[in-house]
Design a protein around this nucleic acid. Structure first.
Length: 570
RNA sequence: CGGGACGUAGCGCAGCUUGGUAGCGCACCUCGCUUGGGACGAGGGGGUCGCAGGUUCAAAUCCUGUCGUCCCGACCA
């Protein structure tokens, strides 16, 4: 491709509305163009990157025994009503009516469709297991799309679904997919960590996420992991062994239950300082509204509530912290002094986090303004539930070593669905004994567009993108410094043609611009290798530069061609 | 959903306070010159100032409404 013909416009400045580095670079380097919030055109450079990622996925999925198909993007409400998700999915599901007033939606995922595809088609145990996948656009009307391709509303996803007659068979395929995913991301030049996770709206029991670990804040997930063993989990699922699991207020002089005045002492921090006790001796009370009903969460003062865990513990659909006004309405006390004391459990559900299990003689809000109670003990043992967020340094549940935390971008996930969809949708096969049974299912997703963005988050510098060569839009950028110079241009053309003939993806920057412009663009766009044909051609030499290392070598044109072949075709 | 900010040329912005011919930089087109790190000179094209009302002789500017975009928060008591 000649640069003069390539559909690309690089910008001198970063766009104003981008926050994430991948978003800024994708726009500035001419890969994407926004149409509206969370919805982008993938320009030719981007399309090449996406095609490469897709191709790697395709090859590895096929090698793992899966078959590609393509399902409809527009779906009738009927199948969603059947699975029970029409009501549950919420506003992320973009719904509309067709001309006959039939309820429809845009596909955010395809469990319902694949189930109806397989159901009635593969009806014998002899035909199972099977794994089907597609690479397709999805639409999720996110509350807050941001970070460009990292959280768009419209995005490209590879989604695979497997059907089994037994849990053992599903387990096997789950492992098979985990291995395939590892290979896929490795081939994309990305290191990933497979972590335990919550299964969220998709449902099911066992699930793992593949995370690209980043130091940037753009990773929207916290991942807790152990350096000593294999344990790692998304913060929404991670568990730990508490530090100081047993705390006793008596160690700080509060061995008798007593109501104390604590004027204007509202936060745990202030209370801890005021009473001279560590926050781990305080039981704090946090009010949530779950599906419009109040839930009071009791949790150790040094811990925080993990909302996804709470959501799951309650079996609720939606959850949010209550406002101060709501707290007053439900508990009859201003925030800062709340507790479950005197609260009618028929009106306000009370949940007690596991972190409170080992607490004795603790401090608790009096549920009266400006008063707390010290030396308190549970009068009856509550049911302790884990709804707390792990903290870095707490101990690994597997091997007791301190856990670490890092940010991560979720690029893929694998779920065991079991019969969550096959049962309600009545999707069955006939087993050896002639009995009808629901399929046991698994599903496996990879965000294609997000993987590309994650690669940029991981690999960039002040000059631009540094693509792993496996997913770069082109491999080599040949730059004649002066296109007017027939010798330079001649050699550049010769290199260009030879690389083309060798099957290498190459761009010839034949634009009449000055060298600086071409170098800047080359680095911004992120070509892995650059061959500069400039004044050293007088000595028969060109320059070979590696984008990743910045290393520059002088060599003959033929040597440069050979080097490209060695680096790219082996 | 709540809070804040912003909508003026493809991109980045000024102009608005105090109403009076729509501007700058980049990009784009032409010519010249230049060619190893985002050159320079001259000329040129492109905008119903988000949209709809209102006030006024006159609105990018003032008022009202509306739509859109971005950020922050979903406050752990």
């Amino acid at each position: 491709m000649r640069m003069s013909k390539l559909f690309v416009q690089t910008l001198r400045e970063f766009p104003n509305d981008a926050e994430a580095i991948s978003h800024k670079l994708l726009v500035r380097a001419g890969y994407i163009k926004k149409l509206t919030s969370g919805i982008y055109s993938y320009l030719p450079l981007m399309q090449r990157v996406l095609a490469k990622i897709s191709q790697i996925i395709r090859e590895e999925m096929n090698a793992a025994g899966a078959q590609e198909l393509l399902m409809p993007f527009v779906q009738p409400a009927e199948i969603w009503q059947k699975s029970g998700r029409w009501e549950v999915y919420g506003r992320e599901l973009a719904r509309f009516c067709d001309r006959h007033d039939n309820k429809m939606c845009l596909a955010p995922t395809h469990e319902e469709v694949i189930t109806s595809v397989v159901s009635g088609t593969f009806t014998s145990y002899k035909q199972l297991p099977i794994n089907l996948y597609q690479i397709q656009t999805k639409f999720r009307d996110e509350i807050r799309p941001r970070f460009g391709l990292l959280r768009g509303r419209e995005f490209i996803m590879k989604d695979a679904y497997s059907f089994h007659t037994s849990q053992e068979s599903l387990d096997e395929e789950y492992e098979n997919m985990a291995r395939a995913y590892k290979r896929i991301f490795e081939r994309c030049g990305l290191e990933t960590k497979m972590v335990q996770s919550d299964s969220g709206a998709i449902g099911g029991s066992v699930s793992h996420e593949f995370m690209v670990l980043t130091s940037t804040q753009t990773g929207e997930n916290d991942v807790f992991y152990c350096e000593n063993c294999d344990y790692s989990a998304n913060s929404n699922h991670a568990v730990s062994i508490l530090l100081n699991p047993q705390t006793n207020g008596a160690d700080y002089g509060y061995d008798k239950e007593q109501k104390l005045d604590t004027p204007n002492v509202k936060t745990i921090e202030q209370l801890s300082e005021f009473l001279k006790v560590p926050s781990s001796c305080i039981l704090k009370s946090v009010l949530y509204i779950a599906d419009s009903k109040p839930v009071l969460v009791m949790i150790r003062g040094d811990k925080e509530v993990e909302e996804t865990k709470l959501l799951n513990a309650l079996g609720a659909l939606e959850i949010r912290p209550a406002t101060s006004d709501e707290a007053y309405d439900y508990l009859g006390c201003e925030v800062g002094y709340l507790s479950f004391l005197g609260v009618d459990e028929n009106k306000v559900k009370i949940i007690c986090d596991k972190s409170a299990q080992g607490m004795k003689n603790f401090v608790i809000g009096a549920n009266e303004p400006h008063k707390h109670i010290v030396g308190y003990n549970f009068t009856k043992t509550p049911d302790f539930v884990d709804v707390s967020l792990v903290k870095e340094g707490e101990l690994c549940p597997c091997c007791n070593k301190p856990l670490k935390v890092t940010r991560g971008i979720e690029v893929g996930n694998i779920f065991q669905l079991g019969t969550k969809y096959s049962k309600p949708m009545n999707a069955t096969y006939t087993d050896e004994n002639g009995e009808e049974k629901p399929f046991i299912m698994g599903c496996y997703g990879i965000g294609v567009t997000r993987t590309a963005a994650a690669a940029i988050e991981r690999y960039h510098d002040d000059f631009g993108i540094i693509w792993p060569k496996e997913i770069a839009p082109y491999h080599v950028d040949v730059v004649p410094v002066n296109t007017e110079d027939s010798e330079q241009m001649g050699v550049a053309l010769e290199i260009y043609n030879k690389l083309l003939n060798a099957g290498i993806e190459v761009v010839l920057d034949d634009r009449a611009d000055r060298a600086g412009v071409k170098f800047k663009d080359s680095e911004l766009i992120g070509f892995p290798y650059r061959i500069t044909v400039g004044k050293t051609i007088k000595e028969g030499l060109v320059e070979f530069k590696c984008r990743k290392t910045g290393e520059v070598e002088k060599m003959t044109a033929d040597e440069a061609i050979e080097k490209c072949k060695t680096l790219l075709l082996s």
